[in-house]
């Protein structure tokens, strides 16, 4: 397959996944902002979220204060914000458009339709139905896009690069979602006890990654931070966990393997096996936030390597 085609497929999938997870992060933060608390806490919550999404500077260039409305506007509609859902869906569609001949018509139409709808969305419409309905819509379109991908695409290289993009992005994003929650905690062993009683915060987090029912099913017990972390980091049967994401990254990577990719595959395999054999208490011993940051650095490195090995054209 053309390197450029693989590149577009990879980024098409990443941007769709990013749009979905941005909706998830916004959803959980928005819900937490509605819990009884003072205004400063709400501001800290939004600024923390933007920091973890690496969009704080871009936000402050346009807005002076953190208000729920301004952040939502910035993260959903702002055309200058490369991380806004608007921009993610546009980039998804642009990448799909560039390789529409490689996609099944259903997949192309799904992406095109999502974009056409997004383009017609307005702040007024959002306020009318509430942000929750919009976030649901984004998630739903992402589910649809993934379902159409799996349901219609030939199981060849094109599908592998799409899947690779999806799971590499998800690994990064789930780590960020966890970081948003752990932001205000100090590194160290006491993380486990902190806010342990704050049932609403943890349930909102679980719901944001569609893991609330899963948690109940797996643990049949009350919600504790340690178990939440274990579920979202180490449980390979949890579809949005870091372990699951890395398992998919590794298996798709080995299937597109070429003459240059051995080291990239090794690094992905190493990261995957750490998750497969790791224990949550030892991860907490070294500091959970630091662990998540290191993990994201390694995901970033993998992304660069995949690009070098497969996607960026080089002569002969």
């Amino acid at each position: 397959m053309l390197s450029r085609t693989a590149d577009h497929l990879f980024w098409m999938a990443r941007y769709m996944e990013r749009a979905e997870n941005t909706a998830r992060i916004l959803d959980v933060t928005y819900r937490l902002s509605l819990l009884p608390q003072n205004g400063e806490e709400v501001e800290a919550m939004w600024s923390g979220m933007l920091k973890i999404m690496e969009l704080q500077d871009a936000y402050l260039a346009k807005h002076r204060a953190y208000s729920t409305d301004a952040v939502l506007q910035f993260m959903i509609f702002d055309r200058d914000n490369p991380g806004s859902i608007y921009r993610c869906l546009r980039a998804t569609r642009e990448n799909a458009h560039a390789v529409r001949g490689t996609l099944t018509s259903e997949l192309w139409e799904t992406s095109n339709e999502t974009w056409l709808k997004m383009r017609d969305f307005t702040v007024a419409k959002l306020l009318e139905s509430g942000p929750g309905a919009f976030f649901e819509w984004v998630k739903y379109r992402s589910h649809l896009s993934r379902g159409v991908t799996i349901g219609t695409m030939l199981q060849d290289e094109a599908l592998r690069f799409i899947r690779l993009g999806t799971f590499l992005e998800r690994a990064d994003n789930t780590a960020r979602i966890l970081e948003v929650k752990y932001l205000n905690l100090l590194p160290g062993a006491d993380e486990e006890q902190a806010h342990a009683t704050d049932y609403y915060q943890w349930s909102a987090l679980l719901q944001s990654v569609s893991a609330f029912e899963v948690y109940r099913k797996v643990y049949r017990d009350q919600i504790t931070p340690l178990r939440v972390a274990e579920l979202l980091v180490l449980r390979a049967d949890m579809p949005r966990s870091l372990a699951r994401s890395m398992k998919e990254v590794y298996s798709n990577l080995t299937r597109v393997s070429n003459a240059r990719s051995a080291e990239t595959e090794r690094l992905a395999g190493e990261l995957e096996s750490h998750l497969r054999f790791g224990r949550i208490d030892s991860i907490f011993e070294g500091g959970f936030r630091k662990y998540l940051e290191d993990f994201r650095d390694r995901i970033f490195d993998l992304g660069c390597r995949i690009s070098d090995d497969f996607l960026i054209p080089t002569s002969s």
Binding site: M1, L2, A6, F161, V256, N258, P313, S316
Partner: peptide, 13 residues
């Protein structure tokens, strides 16, 4: 290259 046209693919030229 050498009067032959190639395309750049994920598996080489």
């Amino acid at each position: 290259s050498d009067d032959q046209v190639f395309m750049r693919t994920t598996q080489g030229p």
